[in-house]
Amino acid sequence: MVDLYSDTQTRPTAGMREAMAKAVVGDEQSGDDPTTNALCERTAALLGMEAAVFMPSGTMCNLVAILTQTRAGDEIVVDASSHIYNTEGASAAAIGGVSTKPLTTENGVFTAEQAEAAIRPPARTAPRSALVSVENTTAFSGGSVWPLEAVRAVRDVAKRHGLIAHMDGARLLNAVAATGISAADYVDGFDTAWIDLSKGLGCPVGAVLCGTKDFIVEAWRWKYRLGGAMRQSGVLAAAGLYALDHHVDQLKVDNDNALALDHGLRAIEGVEIAAPTQSNILRFSVEALGVPEADFAKACLERGVRFRATGAHEIRATTHLDVDRAGVERAIAAAREVAASLG
């Protein structure tokens, strides 16, 4: 199986499993797990922030960042295709009473002008604009990489209006691999940011949320309330440390493989790339073939290649460390065969 459904499909490597088995552990909830503490310190340094907390998931990172820095009745500003808006179960609203204002974009990157227009003037009858979130890279808009000047322009709008600037950095290190811009430069001036360990880095679970020391104290309260506190989490944190040592360079390979897949799919009649491929995610359309995207994906799956049908004739493909260049070539061949048979 060539599994391009998502980079969440990665499995821990033999070296990572060995590191997990040998991890020195303690009680994370009491602050006594040395491996977890080391991962938090290292990630905070990587992002240029004061402190960090280890979370079971990136979804919890987003939710805790929102709950810690907003109050019920507030409104947050996000892209309309963002993970926060589409695939987190409306958790900010369900748990925190926080509403979401989505911005329509072509590729998941909104402008400073859009952010400015979305921030509400103070009014008794309106929600209070409280937080602006940037997703870098974008999950459902083709893995778009935010230009640094666009990131900073949106950050500056948030700061000028007294709002929290938050970065959903689930695939931030893919953006780093694509541009050479450091993670710390991308999140400079942001109040909170996080990276995922269970996507391109290949860990079985986990993410790390960063911010000021005072923020992390309050974030821990929400982590505990939400059932996220763990015991010997060093077994999981060891995977994160191993990934930071051994898998970061792989992200450049993943980006290159996505570009190779892009080039191969472009050569198939009836297949159209939806947006320029910038990282390890790409979107393509099969509308010109006159078949539903689900049918196309199902036919590819029968040939041992798994894509993700996302609706509106579009399909998403995501490269990762479990897919090598030979797997990319197999995916192109399967897509070509299916396009010929269905078209």
Rank of each mutant, 00 (worst) to 15 (best):
S144G: 05
A139M: 10
L201I: 05
R231L: 07
M167E: 01
A115M: 14
K22D: 15
T87Y: 12
K199H: 09
F190A: 02
P204F: 13
Q29Y: 03
A90K: 12
K199N: 07
G264F: 09
E269Q: 13
A193K: 12
P102K: 08
I84F: 10
A237M: 15
H166L: 07
L46I: 00
P34C: 04
V2I: 10
R124A: 11
E314Q: 10
L244Y: 11
T100N: 13
L131C: 09
D74Y: 10
R160G: 03
D156E: 01
T104A: 14
S99Y: 06
E287G: 01
T35P: 09
P127E: 13
N62E: 07
L289V: 02
R221M: 05
Y224P: 00
Q250T: 02
T192P: 00
D254F: 00
D185E: 15
T59Y: 05
G48S: 07
E272H: 04
M16F: 03
I119W: 06
L39M: 04
A80R: 15
S91R: 11
M16E: 02
A51D: 15
T125I: 09
C203R: 11
V145A: 06
V323Q: 15
Q250E: 10
Y5K: 10
T59F: 08
C300P: 01
H313T: 01
